[in-house]
Design a binder for these strands. Structure first.
Length: 574
DNA sequence: GCCGTTTTCGGCCCGACTGTTTTCAGTCG
C-alpha cells in the first residue's frame, strides 16, 4: 500500500491535536501542523522522495525529527509517536476539538475532570449539570456547547459556490444600500472561487462601523446573531449559512481584503514573509514599528512584502508565493477568452431547448461555436440517441449551419463509455462527427485499476476527442469514482486527446489539482458548460473560476482557440 | 519541533469577541 501525503498529514494533525489536549509546547504543536501544510502544498508524494533517498530536511518546516517520522511512516505505515499518544489519551478526543466552542483547554478539562471523551458523553454531562460545576464553564458556555454538539451531530453540508452566490449577492447588495458604506466585497473562499464554501465572509469599508453592524444584524434573513462587536459580527441566516462581516476604514481596506480572502495558510506564509522583512502584517495594514506603510489596496500589501499582486484563486499556499517571487505567476484565463463551448444538449436528448435557441443564446453570450453533444442510446433516461437519430441530427445541424451567422454548430455526441471501455455507438457513426465526448454514467464502483483501464481503453478508440467530467463527482452528493488521474492524464498526452473541465456548479470536474497536472503534461482542457438549458451557458463562469484555481492560462484551454484551430486540433484526435 | 540577511539560542502570525472573572483565558477565523 503506497503512502500518500494525505496519510502523513492525517497522522501529523492527529499528533498535533493530541499534543494540544496534553497542553504540550505550542510551538512543538505548530511544527506538526506546519509540516502537514508543507506536505499539503507538495505536488507529488513525499514517499517518492523517500524512495529516492532524498534529504527531506531540505523541505521547509521539516527538520531531522519530522524527516525521520516521515520515513518511518512511509516504510511501516505507522508512527510510534502517535501510537504512544493514543495509549495515553482516548482516540475519540480529537473529534471533540471539532465541536465549535471546544478548544484544547476545555477538552483537557472535560477529559481529566469528568472523563468525557465523546460528544454523547459531553451532551449528557451538560444536561445533568456536571459541566457547570467545572471552573471556567458558566451557564452560557454550557448552553452554547449543547447547541453546537447538536448541530455538530447534524453536520451541515457545505454550500456549492453557485448556491452561496444565491445568498451572498443579495446580502452584499443590501449592505451596499446603507449610506455609510463605501464598498462591499465578498471575500473568503467564495472570492478564491472554491467549489464549495462553508460560510460567507463579507468585508465592508466604512468610516463609522457601528451603524453598519446594526444594519447587518437586522437583515431580514438573519436567524441568529452569534456575535457582534465594533468591527466584527457573525450571524446565521435562516438557511443555516453562517455569515461573518468585518468593517474597516478605507486605509485598511486592502489589508483587510487580503486577510479575509485567505486562505489561512497563504496568510500565515505572507505574514511570516513580512516579519522576515522587519514588518508586521495584520488586517489593518503593513506596519514598520507603529507606522503604517501599506494597506489601502491589496496591491500595496503585496508590494510592501516585495511581491506582485497574486490572484485570489491562487492563494492556497500551493507555490503561488514562490511563483510571484520569481515573476512566474500564470496569466490566468478569463471568461472572455472562451471562443466556444464543446458540450451542450438540446431537446433531442435531455435538454430543454431547440438547436436554434441554443445556437442563438450561445452567440448572444459571445461564443463563436457550440458543439451539440446529446447523450447516446445506453442512457435511456435521457432519451439518448441511437445511430439513426444521430444521423438525422447531423443533417439538421448541417442545414441549420447554412442559415446561421456569427456562430457555428459542431456535430458531436456525449457517448457512454461502457463497462469494458468500448463506446456506446459504432465507430463508423462516430467518424461522421466533428468531435466525440465520452463519459462514464454507469458502474461507478469499479476498482481503481478497472476504472482506470476502462477509461484508457475508451481513449484508445479511434474517434475519441474529449473525456467528459473525468472524475464523475457530484458535489455533496456523490464522490468521484476511483481512478488514477495522473495515469489518465499521461495517456491523454500520448493519445493526443483532451480532458473536460465541466463547468456545471454541481460538478466542477476536473478538480483544480488535476488541471495543474494536465497543464504540466501539456494536455489541453476544454471548459464546457454541459448546458441543458439556454441559461446554463452562465455556468461557464464557474468553470473559469475552477480553471483559474488550477493555474490555467488561455493557452492551456482548447476552446480559447478559433473555430478553425479547434477543428484542426479535434481532427488530430480522430 | 524548526529555523537563521539580528544564525546554534531564543524566537516562532495576529487580532476580535465572548464569557467568566474582576484583569484575562479560551476560542475562532
Amino acid at each position: 500500500m503506497p503512502i500518500h501525503n494525505a496519510d502523513i498529514i492525517r497522522i501529523f494533525e492527529e499528533i498535533a491535536d493530541l499534543l494540544e489536549i496534553q497542553q504540550a509546547n505550542t510551538f512543538r504543536i505548530r511544527a506538526y501542523r506546519n509540516a502537514a501544510r508543507t506536505l499539503q502544498s507538495m505536488d507529488k508524494d513525499v514517499a517518492v522522495l523517500v524512495e529516492q533517498h532524498a534529504d527531506l530536511t531540505q523541505l521547509p518546516t521539516i527538520g531531522k525529527d519530522l524527516a525521520a517520522k516521515i520515513e518511518e511512516i512511509v516504510h511501516t505505515g505507522q508512527c510510534q509517536a502517535l501510537t504512544k499518544l493514543r495509549q495515553q489519551l482516548p482516540a475519540s478526543l480529537p473529534e471533540l476539538l471539532k465541536i465549535p466552542g471546544l478548544g484544547p483547554k476545555r477538552v483537557h478539562a472535560l477529559y481529566h475532570e469528568l472523563d468525557i471523551h465523546t460528544p454523547e458523553q459531553l451532551l449528557r454531562a451538560a444536561r445533568d449539570g456536571r459541566i457547570l460545576a467545572l471552573h471556567g464553564f458558566g451557564q452560557k458556555t454550557v448552553d452554547a456547547l449543547v447547541r453546537s454538539i447538536e448541530s455538530h451531530i447534524r453536520q451541515k453540508p457545505r454550500l456549492k459556490l453557485a448556491e452561496a452566490a444565491h445568498y451572498a449577492k443579495p446580502l452584499a447588495h443590501y449592505l451596499q444600500q446603507h449610506p455609510g458604506v463605501d464598498e462591499v466585497t465578498i471575500a473568503g473562499s467564495y472570492r478564491r472561487g472554491k467549489d464549495t464554501v462553508g460560510d460567507i465572509d463579507l468585508l465592508v469599508s466604512a468610516a463609522d462601523s457601528q451603524p453598519v453592524m446594526a444594519h447587518f444584524t437586522h437583515y431580514d434573513e438573519v436567524a441568529k446573531v452569534q456575535s457582534s462587536g465594533r468591527t466584527r459580527a457573525s450571524v446565521v441566516l435562516k438557511c443555516g449559512l453562517q455569515v461573518d462581516l468585518r468593517v474597516v476604514a478605507k486605509p485598511s481596506f486592502g489589508a483587510a481584503l487580503h486577510y479575509f480572502t485567505g486562505s489561512r495558510s497563504h496568510n500565515i506564509e505572507l505574514r511570516r514573509r513580512a516579519q522576515q522583512r522587519g514588518l508586521k502584517l495584520n488586517e489593518y495594514g503593513v506596519f514598520r514599528g507603529d507606522t503604517q506603510v501599506a494597506g489601502a489596496t491589496e496591491d500595496s500589501v503585496f508590494k510592501a512584502v516585495g511581491l506582485p499582486w497574486i490572484p485570489p484563486e491562487l492563494r492556497e499556499n500551493q507555490g503561488e508565493i514562490a511563483a510571484a517571487e520569481a515573476g512566474e505567476l500564470p496569466n490566468l484565463i478569463e471568461l472572455r477568452h472562451l471562443q466556444g463551448d464543446l458540450h451542450a444538449h438540446t431537446r433531442a436528448s435531455d435538454g430543454h431547448a431547440s438547436l436554434e435557441t441554443m445556437a442563438a443564446v450561445a452567440k448572444q453570450k459571445g461564443l463563436r461555436y457550440l458543439a451539440i453533444t446529446e447523450h447516446s442510446q445506453r442512457l435511456t433516461v435521457t432519451h439518448g440517441l441511437n445511430a439513426e437519430q444521430l444521423r438525422r441530427q447531423i443533417d439538421q445541424i448541417n442545414a441549420l449551419n447554412d442559415t446561421l451567422e456569427g456562430i457555428t454548430l459542431l456535430k458531436g455526441i456525449e457517448v457512454d463509455i461502457l463497462e469494458d471501455g468500448s463506446l456506446d455507438l459504432p465507430d463508423e457513426v462516430l467518424g461522421q462527427l466533428d468531435l466525440v465526448i465520452a463519459a462514464i454514467h454507469s458502474k461507478f464502483h469499479l476498482s481503481r485499476q478497472l476504472q482506470t483501464e476502462r477509461i484508457i481503453r475508451a481513449m484508445q478508440r479511434p474517434h475519441f476527442s474529449i473525456l467528459a467530467h473525468p472524475t464523475g463527482r457530484l458535489l455533496e452528493q456523490r464522490d468521484a469514482y476511483d481512478v488514477d488521474m495522473p495515469r489518465v492524464i499521461r495517456e491523454a498526452r500520448q493519445r493526443g486527446c483532451y480532458l473536460e473541465l465541466n463547468a456545471h456548479p454541481e460538478r466542477l470536474d476536473l478538480l483544480d489539482t488535476h488541471c495543474r497536472m494536465a497543464k504540466a503534461e501539456g494536455v489541453l482542457i476544454s471548459i464546457n458548460s454541459d448546458a441543458h438549458h439556454p441559461n446554463d451557458f452562465d455556468n461557464l463562469t464557474y468553470g473559469i473560476g475552477q480553471a483559474r484555481r488550477g493555474w490555467l492560462e488561455k493557452e492551456d484551454v482548447l476552446n480559447t482557440r478559433s473555430l478553425r484551430q479547434v477543428k484542426r486540433l479535434l481532427t488530430q484526435t480522430l
